[in-house]
């Protein structure tokens, strides 16, 4: 059996799960425990305790864990850094492989993969924008239709058509815009559509099997936004060129 310890701190929710599977069988992983709560801005003080609670409920010691997985974003910059720095520390200290998992890819596993479905995870990116991506289920497999991006909701929705299944706090926040732009859209309401470490774990197993890197140094956040200083500098350079 293979044991995986996963965490998602990309939003204000803190989610930690211990999952297991038999790598020889195609059966979905089993969730041994999942600790899930609203951490607000307290990820840094809660995360290790949440991990200990998850391990304790699963009756698994940290030494028995074979694989680590962490959400790499997009999401809250601070939340991502707390999760990544903490999980990098675990990986370095225990010499464990660490799989970085994109948040929206993991979220696509929160809902059933019915044939032909268009799954659209959306997270509130503040500044009147969403982090979004779109996946089509074809022949039982997930095909990326729209790579993770950060856009104003109208612009993001303009790239979609048909009857998407919209999930995440961004979908809830902009439900009126979704209904107007895509009348056939289906909303998965909270709480089922919030990022969860168990979905992340499932995605991590799949990536691990696909040969994804497990180097802890390379499990870095994907922010999708540059720092304001970089934006200002690029704008100044553009103005200068013009």
């Amino acid at each position: 059996m293979q044991y995986l310890l996963a965490a998602d701190t990309a939003t204000s929710l803190c989610s930690v799960a211990v999952c297991t599977r038999d790598p020889e069988t195609p059966v979905p992983p089993q969730i041994l425990s999942e600790v899930h709560f609203e951490a607000g801005r307290r990820h840094a003080e809660s995360l290790l305790d949440a991990m200990d609670a998850a391990l304790s409920h699963a009756a698994i010691a940290l030494e028995e864990i074979d694989l680590l997985a962490i959400a790499t974003g997009p999401g809250s910059f601070t939340g991502l850094r707390i999760g990544v720095a903490t999980w990098k520390g675990l990986a370095f200290a225990q010499r464990l492989p660490l799989v970085g998992v994109p948040t929206l890819d993991a979220m696509s596993r929160l809902v059933p993969w019915t044939e032909g479905a268009l799954i659209v995870p959306m997270l509130d990116a503040r500044m009147s924008e969403v982090f979004g991506a779109a996946y089509r289920i074809e022949d039982g497999a997930r095909v990326e239709q729209q790579a993770a991006c950060v856009l104003p909701p109208q612009e993001f929705l303009a790239q979609l058509s048909g009857a998407p299944l919209c999930i995440g706090d961004g979908a809830w926040l902009y439900r009126e815009q979704i209904a107007a732009a895509l009348p056939q859209a289906v909303m998965a309401l909270p709480p089922g559509a919030a990022p969860r470490a168990s979905a992340l774990a499932w995605e991590a197993f799949s990536r691990y099997d696909g040969g994804a890197t497990t180097d802890p140094g390379l499990a870095n956040p994907v922010y999708l936004r540059k720092s304001q200083a970089e934006v200002n500098r690029e704008n100044a350079a553009k103005a200068h060129d013009a």
Partner: peptide, 19 residues
């Protein structure tokens, strides 16, 4: 800087916990 401090503190706490 808060963001910078968080990286060192979170990484260090993990090391202390594991070891």
């Amino acid at each position: 800087l808060m963001g910078s401090l968080l990286v060192g503190v979170c990484f260090a706490k993990s090391l202390a916990r594991v070891w």
